[in-house]
Design a protein around this nucleic acid. Sequence first.
DNA 1: ATTATATGTCAGTCTTGTTGACTTTATCGG
DNA 2: CCGATAAAGTCAACAAGACTGACATATAAT
Lengths: 170, 170
Amino acid sequence: MAEGGHQGTPGSEGLLFLTDEQLRKGIEAMFFAYRGFTADPDRILEQHGYGRAHHRAIHFIHRSPGTTVNNLLSILGVTKQSLNRVLRTLIDDGLVESRVGKRDKRERHLFLTETGDALERELSDAQRERMRAAFRSVGPDAVVGFRQVLEAMMDPEMRRHFQTLKDSGQ
Amino acid sequence: MAEGGHQGTPGSEGLLFLTDEQLRKGIEAMFFAYRGFTADPDRILEQHGYGRAHHRAIHFIHRSPGTTVNNLLSILGVTKQSLNRVLRTLIDDGLVESRVGKRDKRERHLFLTETGDALERELSDAQRERMRAAFRSVGPDAVVGFRQVLEAMMDPEMRRHFQTLKDSGQ
DNA sequence: ATTATATGTCAGTCTTGTTGACTTTATCGG
DNA sequence: CCGATAAAGTCAACAAGACTGACATATAAT
């Protein structure tokens, strides 16, 4: 009778959380929640003439200052042509700086400028605020569960990126 | 000292789950997990020549058979021109049937055909399989937390749609 | 010296979203 | 019954953001 590692009501019924109906609710929860998740940044981005793609680039450059283009490509999972378009505008607009690598001069290391950092803060403040409110309203235990499920849903390579904090290098 | 309603370690520290760093992890978890969430259906859709927009329409018609176009519009949050494009192809391809309303003949009630249902099953089987594996690996308590956080992150109107099960009418 | 890597760019395509204008059909309120 | 409102559909134009394929340049590695 020893189950995986979690408890549940240890008696007979168990696994009621794995019914198709429960899974459907989980699927819809992801769909609707993701909309809320992006809603606030989307409004801000629109005012600045940017889109979600710019947000993603800004976010990960902020998280890992000095990251290379290739690194960013593998995190974002898009083509270099696609990334280059948004990176080009961010650099031209003075939000991102691209420095030639010292060890390997082929590489470009990406950094946010002061302006870029300001937009990053504006965006993440909004997004964090919503998440903070959600977290607070449900309590720390629910937050742990939230993170566990999300991590378990990721593709292995994305889980690697998620768990890896530092990866600059310069 | 009585806090909201959740416990945590009841001593002094509390609220460590609301730090900016924890929130950033939550944000990235959403980003990476959503990718995993859509990855399997995306592969299937590609084989059939459809996109995510078709999936969403199929999903919600399956969930609420007989739903009207307006209903679908408010759930999906897109313009009718945008929805009409995908609905048109689904109807032309014989996956969706559009029946004139009996009470109100202006309305069209949408249903999946057998073919449509088959594709729906193919898509949701794949998506459910991933979620089932995630749910199983973390246990029922984590799943409860997952759902609570997601629901708290939704916009109020989306939360309404999420909580509402039936809405056909015919 | 050749090959491989990192980056960037040009050109074209596709999906999915947007606005705005307009039509048809049907319901509803006076 | 008539005028206003509503539900659905359509046409046209446009934009963001993804894709492919081809090709260029600089640098590193063998």
